[in-house]
């Protein structure tokens, strides 16, 4: 947890997948497992979420609280916002 917090502070560019602007390339910086249930965490792993993997928000279902569709590796995955909020990303500087 400490690493996570320090990371948040040390890299001002780091933000969560939920707030990542659409079509902005990024990599997974860290995943806050404490915000996820065990099955959620496992499924997230199984879908390939891991530190260093390329990620991008493709679509948002609605303006409110609908799920988001994102690219992880070469796969497209639908997630709810709460889960996306637990995934910290660092945008790739272009």
């Amino acid at each position: 947890m400490d690493i996570l917090r320090s990371m948040k502070l040390s890299t001002p560019e780091s933000l969560s997948l939920e707030s990542l602007p659409q079509r902005r390339q990024a990599t997974v910086a860290a995943i806050d497992w404490s915000h996820l249930s065990t099955p959620e965490a496992r499924r997230l792993r199984e879908l390939g979420f891991d530190e260093g993997v390329g990620v991008e928000v493709l679509h948002r279902a609605s303006l409110g609280k609908g799920p988001i569709a994102c690219r992880i590796g070469r796969m497209t995955v639908a997630l709810r916002r709460a889960v996306a909020g637990a995934i910290l990303v660092s945008p790739v500087t272009q």
């Binding site: 959620e40 799920p67 569709a69 995955v77 639908a78 997630l79």
Partner: peptide, 10 residues
């Protein structure tokens, strides 16, 4: 029970 969420490969 807790909502199971929605996580699916498209």
């Amino acid at each position: 029970g807790a909502s199971s969420g929605f996580m699916m490969e498209m």
